[in-house]
């Protein structure tokens, strides 16, 4: 499968008063055409900043180095003017709160048709027709009427659908969705996940789903990348990571997540707190919270390395099937 995005040695840092915080370190991965990649991690893991940096949307004190190539186009370090040629056309991003991403003073139809007028040189009439078709495609009832509405007149679920419609107007190769269902009700979240599944299939768009919710990951993703303390700690196919996690943090996330289909007696939380990016522990950043740690983990940082056959990688010195070991313990 063709790679639509190739990330190598991506680093993101933020300048503070008299120090620098590294939010993302040495990120390497590729995104394949049409696949759904889930990026999983807790707050401060660097999962959002990695993709904001690719979109050129870092805060003013942020800086990205390394490379993010979309075909032959290098996105890292590209001036905003030039980025605008690709943003919204080849690569699009949607966020958790659609209200803050929509312009409150413009009608929905204006905001949508503008994208096509700008990127595809459509005339107003053709753009509007296409916009209304897309609204219908993402499941908005009576799209002509809704197109005439202002964002505040729509419900949260409807607004998120408008955002998705806007992101898909130019049939981008890549759609980055940052916690797109977190603010929605359960029944609406289910509708959204259904929509993502069918849209990626119909448009061949590669989807990056940034989330902390493993239930969401299980339902939509093909592959996943788990991040901790600014680094990728485990990557691979969703089934492999869920049924045979090899990084203790992945195991911890799974054991912390209650399953509505079964009632466990007790959850097994990850003890301790997520690390402060300013004071990462020496060696493996997860070592203070790890059940499987040994001496080496305090001295050296484990690199993200491939193992086994199924395109898996992990950044952990411990060798063993963690889930099986936890269950027998």
């Amino acid at each position: 499968m063709e790679n639509v995005l190739e990330i190598s040695d991506l680093n993101v840092s933020f300048a503070l008063h008299n120090s620098e915080v590294h939010a993302v370190r040495d990120l390497n991965f590729s995104l394949r055409a049409g696949e759904t990649l889930a990026v999983v991690g807790e707050s401060g893991s660097g999962k959002s900043q990695s993709f904001l940096s690719i979109m050129g949307l870092l805060a003013r004190n942020g800086r990205a180095t390394g490379s993010a190539k979309m075909g032959d186009v290098e996105l890292v370090g590209m001036p905003p003017r030039q980025l605008d040629k690709y943003r919204g056309k080849d690569i699009a991003m949607i966020f958790q709160d659609p209200m803050t991403s929509l312009n409150p003073s413009l009608k929905i139809k204006r905001q949508l048709s503008e994208v096509l007028v700008k990127h595809q040189n459509y005339d107003e009439k053709k753009a509007l027709k296409e916009a209304i078709e897309m609204l219908e495609r993402v499941g908005i009832p009576s799209p002509e009427r809704r197109a005439n509405a202002y964002p505040h007149e729509l419900s949260g679920g409807m607004r998120q659908r408008v955002m998705i419609a806007m992101a898909l107007l130019c049939r981008p190769k890549i759609l980055i969705a940052d916690e797109p269902t977190t603010a929605l009700d359960v029944t609406v979240q289910a509708q959204m996940l259904d929509l993502f599944r069918s849209l990626t299939k119909d448009f061949g768009t590669a989807l990056v789903m940034i989330t902390h919710n493993l239930g969401v990951v299980a339902g939509v993703a093909d592959r996943m990348m788990v991040m901790y303390g600014g680094r990728a700690v485990e990557t691979g196919h969703v089934d492999d990571l869920f049924y045979d996690p090899r990084h203790p943090y992945t195991l911890g996330l799974l054991s912390s997540t209650p399953n509505p289909a079964e009632r466990a007696k007790r959850l097994t939380p990850i003890e301790g707190l997520p690390p402060s990016l300013e004071h990462l522990p020496k060696g493996c950043a997860f070592n203070p919270r790890c059940k499987f740690r040994f001496e080496k983990c305090f001295e050296e940082r484990p690199p993200l390395e491939p193992f086994g056959e199924a395109e898996r990688k992990k950044a952990c010195f411990y060798e063993g099937q963690l889930l099986a070991e936890e269950r027998s313990a």
Partner: peptide
């Protein structure tokens, strides 16, 4: 019934096997 059907299940095989005809619309 609808709420349960909509709840995300952290288990890829079960999640994929669910063919949900979920609730339409919003509250």
């Amino acid at each position: 019934q609808a709420l349960l059907l909509a709840a995300p299940i952290p288990d890829p095989k079960t999640a994929r096997a669910r063919t949900l005809e979920g609730l339409k619309g919003e509250v």
